[in-house]
């Protein structure tokens, strides 16, 4: 139905001729924008309702009693459904450690939480299809679990956390009882908030994507940064780091580039780096991690993401 509407607008109202670059780009833009905005609205709402059952205050209690491995797996999974913004990273980190959650498990949570978020998932699902969205979730979880386990096993890793963190004592917050009405209200508020924040980037991203889709030659990326170029993956990760968590703006562009021959591994590595590694996030984490651990943290994450890139370029 959206397709029919986009066709009608492109060919009947704008009078563009089917098959031209301009018509292609306009049609692509209209179709994708409507589809993505509808999907974002529905899915953010559903995810927000689910999230209202898992505030970090409750999650820390679940994780406090779990050992390594099981803890890392659970932490990464809970990272997906727990409401989290980077300004909460410091209190969440301290609160988890204080409750007795192992350091590696806490870090698994902090990696998974921004990496696998609902905005990125909607865009992946809507633009790339369910299969690639699921691959992204799977590999994202694996990266979070393994990185957390490795970090937790560094000898004397506790000493690489700022000393004051271990001295803080937390009070006990009463977890408010929410009615279904509260949850729906919260979810609709949250949905509006996110839509307000990302719509412009979605439009920009899809706009640039549409131009690429319509005008860039079909084998453009394949020629310069294809599967056989070993530098493509690390370069993609490097480019992604300054694009702070802006999944909304970057995923449509990457999707268009994939149509021009960018291999899946490079695509995955790029998107993981966009959501999981960023300069502002590191500045925030510096408040609780000493420089040494912060560097190791960023390095392990970068290597893990690059490996995902190479792996998928090799097998797909």
């Amino acid at each position: 139905m959206i397709k029919a509407f986009a066709d009608w607008l492109t060919y009947d109202i704008f009078q563009l001729i089917d098959g031209t670059h301009l018509a292609d780009a306009v049609n692509f833009f209209i179709y994708d924008t409507i589809k993505i905005l509808l999907m974002l609205t529905a899915i953010i709402f559903i995810v927000s309702v689910i999230r209202s059952f898992f505030p970090p205050e409750k999650v820390k209690k679940i994780l406090a009693t779990k050992a390594e491995f099981v803890g890392n797996i659970l932490a990464s999974l809970l990272g997906i459904v727990t409401p989290f913004c980077s300004c909460s990273a410091v209190p969440v980190f301290i609160g988890f450690l204080e409750a007795g959650v192992p350091l590696g498990v806490t870090l698994s949570f902090l990696i998974a939480s921004p990496m696998i978020n609902e905005v990125a998932l909607v865009l992946l699902w809507g633009l790339f299809g369910a299969k690639i969205a699921l691959i992204y979730i799977g590999t994202g979880l694996t990266v979070a679990i393994i990185s957390g386990i490795i970090l937790g096993r560094i000898p004397a890793v506790e000493k690489m956390v700022e000393d004051y963190v271990w001295e803080l004592r937390m009070g006990e917050a009463e977890i408010p009882k929410l009615s279904w009405r509260d949850r729906f209200q919260l979810a609709s508020f949250h949905t509006q908030d996110i839509l307000k924040r990302v719509t412009l980037y979605v439009l920009l991203g899809i706009g640039v994507g549409a131009v690429i889709h319509g005008y860039v030659p079909i084998d453009f990326v394949a020629t310069y940064a294809g599967r056989d170029n070993p530098f493509a993956v690390p370069l993609a990760v490097l480019i992604a780091i300054p694009l702070y968590s802006n999944a909304a703006g970057t995923i449509p562009i990457v999707q268009a580039l994939m149509g021009k021959g960018m291999p899946l591994g490079t695509v995955l590595a790029f998107m993981m780096a966009v959501t999981a590694i960023s300069f502002p996030e590191m500045v925030i984490l510096r408040k609780v991690l000493k420089v040494k651990l912060l560097v190791i943290f960023a390095a392990i994450l970068t290597v893990a993401i690059i490996m995902v890139g190479y792996l998928f370029n090799a097998i797909m």
Partner: peptide, 24 residues
């Protein structure tokens, strides 16, 4: 901040009682 026991910001405290957190 931590003495109030909340992990998700922003938190709203009125007369020492936590009224809301993690949302606006």
């Amino acid at each position: 901040m931590m003495t109030y026991g909340i992990l998700s910001t922003p938190g709203l405290v009125i007369n020492g009682k936590v009224k809301s957190y993690g949302r606006l």
